[in-house]
Amino acid sequence: MSARSSHSRVFLASGLVLGLATIAVSIEWRPLNTHTGYAPEQPVAYSHRLHAGELEIDCLYCHFGARTSPRAGIPPTSVCMNCHATVSSDFGSLLAERALAADEDREPRRIVSAEIRKVYAAMGLDDELQPTDSGPHPIPWVQVHDLPDFVAFDHSVHVSRGLACASCHGPVQSMERVWQESDLSMGWCVNCHRERAADPRITLTREHGKLQPGEHVTTDCVACHY
């Protein structure tokens, strides 16, 4: 008697566990291409914390494509040169060199940090900003955020609506090396759209029978998939 019922209990319990596990797995099911927390090492140890955080450089200064193009884009290396033509190393090293030069009673030498040297090399320049034989070549940045090819995402539309970059990319200004903050799953996109579509302040206006721009948050499939 007791043996039988204990078997039954085992049977039932295992069924229950299996069922709960199934539900848990399906809820936690993640497509393989969501890589929250992905933070690959970059060819140049560029610090967003320094540039976007401490120096408060606007995101759109470098990622200018986000304003007008579907793609935010990785800034051309020449954008780096806007500053780094003159800023060739950290302040500390410069001060140290100046002090040393003063000690040795000579002109301070040009100090180029290892990372900025990589930028110069990509521009096809040497430390003295003279063209080298190797010529320019792009810096092979490793892509952090990647959407599948069947998703059409337009940065400019979101940026022009005043959506903060951090809404999707997280606190980049505090990231030494950029990681993927959001999971970029469809549900994540859709839920944001849903919330905003339900916002009574965002309503559609039709003036003279014309759709007024920027006033409609859509949950149409075709907003992203075509």
């Binding site: 393989l32 291409n33 890589h35 992905y38 690959p40 884009g73 990785i74 800034p75 051309p76 290396t77 020449s78 954008v79 990509a122 521009m123 096809g124 320019p136 070549h137 792009p138 810096i139 092979p140 940045w141 490793v142 892509q143 990647d146």
Partner: peptide
Amino acid sequence: SRAVPSLALPQVTA
């Protein structure tokens, strides 16, 4: 899969 990292190659000169 991120087994092979994707590269994002920018322009050199804007």
